[in-house]
Amino acid sequence: MTGTDNGGWVRSWGASPQTAQGGLGSLDGYPPLDGVTLRQVVRVSGGGRRVRVRFTNEFGSAPFTIGAARVGLAVPGGGVRPGTERVLTFSGAPGVTVPAGAPILSDPVDLSLPALAKLSISLYLPGRVETCTCHDPALETGWTIPGDAVAAPALPETAEVLPVRALISAVELLPDGPARAIVVVGDSRTDGAGSTPDANRSWPELLAERLAGRGAAARYVSNQGISGNRLLNDGIGVSALARFDRDVLATPGLGHVVLSVGANDIGVSFAPRDDGPLADFLKMFPGAPMTTDDVIAGHRQLVARARDCGVPVHATTIAPYEGAEIYTPEGESARQALNAWIRTGGAFDAVLDFDAVWRDPARPSRIRDDFHCGDHLHGNDAGYQALADSIDLSLFG
């Protein structure tokens, strides 16, 4: 049996680590993190009575030092609710040096968090971070503040917006009862691209809202989407095959896996080849073109690895993308072939038919106009809500 029926830790929020250079470039031109406090806000999916934070230097080229860190319930505008502040320690010490290539967990602290609570995480960096492990983009505003401001109850006027999730990758809770984590691995449509920032409108976050209101055994959701990610090749983030053990199978309290990946493998492989702006974009995606059979084989690999851990594996079909710059009829044929296998191949415990939810009945190769953000590729808030609403919650027990 997996999960936390014996009272263990469960991941309630996650963001897959990336290199600053292997993301969307949001840190390009941003000042180095040196002698500053980072204050970032995350929304947990399920609640609990104790909290620990996973900090990350997994793509760092050198160690960095956390001089001090705190958590507390967030209030709008970057503040912390009085009385909820908790000092984080590391093996009892107020600070820690995080080795290059490694994550580090804080010691647990007692803090009662309800489901869907917003948690403020502050960490002071007394020295320079040579290479920032991050998640790009953030989709929830964070800030840098000069000096040690971890104890500041309100956001100082000197704060500047931080454009990425920097140096944090997970929040884990000790729940009050049995709970398990649903981990979603995907690309920008999972990450929430096109949704309203600071509103928690990605479909995994909206799924978490539905699960939180269900009243049954707790199910948390960890969103491990990376914008631009592929199943088989690195590019924007390491490939799903390469990061699957770290981002998914190592999740505390893992109970279910949802695969929502492969769209970029298809889109990039069959994209138009020319010397225009699209050519520069495609340079971010190295490697030979992939076939539908390649993508199917990649899915089978992830299924086998998840089943070795004894967890059910679900998959989403690939939503339409005609109208986007990377669209070609050949890519559409490959998408249809991949979806046919996802629906009928019998590889998964269940299929979430996102293609059926988003496609325009009058032109099934396109997303409905009221469901995309204007680029014919990514959802808007209504589109992601429709995906979340289409999911049968009974799949998760």
Score class of each variant (00 low, 15 high):
Asn380Phe: 07
Leu125Trp: 11
Val87Asn: 06
Gly177Thr: 13
Leu259Glu: 11
Gly67Thr: 09
Phe90Gly: 06
Gly127Arg: 02
Tyr384Phe: 08
Pro108Asn: 14
Val248Asp: 10
Cys309Thr: 14
Pro94Cys: 04
Ala212Ile: 09
Gly323Asp: 04
Glu130Pro: 03
Pro137Gln: 06
Gly60Met: 13
Arg165His: 11
Gly345His: 02
Val150Gly: 01
Leu111Asp: 06
Ser26Tyr: 15
Asp275Trp: 08
Ala115Val: 03
Leu167Arg: 13
Ala151Gly: 01
Asn6Pro: 00
Ser122Pro: 01
Gln40Tyr: 11
Thr19Glu: 15
Val261Ile: 15
Ala15Asp: 02
Ala340Trp: 01
Ala159Gly: 04
Gly101Trp: 09
Leu73Gln: 14
Thr89Asp: 13
Leu352Lys: 03
Gly287Ala: 06
Gly60Ser: 11
Asp349Arg: 00
Pro286Asp: 00
Ile104Glu: 04
Leu231Gly: 01
Leu231Asp: 00
Ser188Leu: 08
Leu259Ser: 07
Ala388Trp: 01
Gly29Gln: 09
Ala117Val: 11
Ala297Ser: 14
Ser227Trp: 09
Ile66Glu: 08
Val129Cys: 07
Gln336Glu: 12
Arg210Glu: 04
Trp9Gln: 03
Gly298His: 03
Arg214Phe: 02
Asp176Asn: 11
Lys283Asp: 05
Arg189His: 04
Gly298Leu: 02
Ala62Arg: 14
Asn264Asp: 12
Pro204Phe: 12
Asp294Met: 09
Val258Leu: 13
Asp280Val: 05
Leu302Lys: 04
Ile66Gly: 02
Arg86Asp: 03
Phe64Pro: 02
Thr4Tyr: 00
Arg343Pro: 11
Leu249Thr: 07
Met284Ser: 07
Val75Asn: 05
Ser365Trp: 01
Leu73Cys: 02
Arg230His: 00
Ser227Glu: 08
Ala382Glu: 13
Ser222Arg: 07
Asp107Arg: 08
Thr291Ser: 15
Ile296Val: 15
Pro32Ala: 15
Arg180Ile: 10
Glu172Cys: 13
Gln301Trp: 03
Ala102Val: 02
Ala138Gly: 00
Thr196Asn: 12
Thr4Ser: 15
Leu123Gln: 11
Asn57Pro: 01
Ala181Asp: 13
Leu395Met: 06
Ser202Gln: 06
Leu352His: 12
Arg11Thr: 15
Pro146Leu: 05
Ala69Asn: 05
Val313Ala: 07
Val36Phe: 12
Arg128His: 04
Val351Met: 11
Phe371Tyr: 15
Leu173Val: 15
Arg363His: 08
Pro364Glu: 14
Gly346Val: 11
Asn200His: 14
Asp392Tyr: 03
Ser12Phe: 10
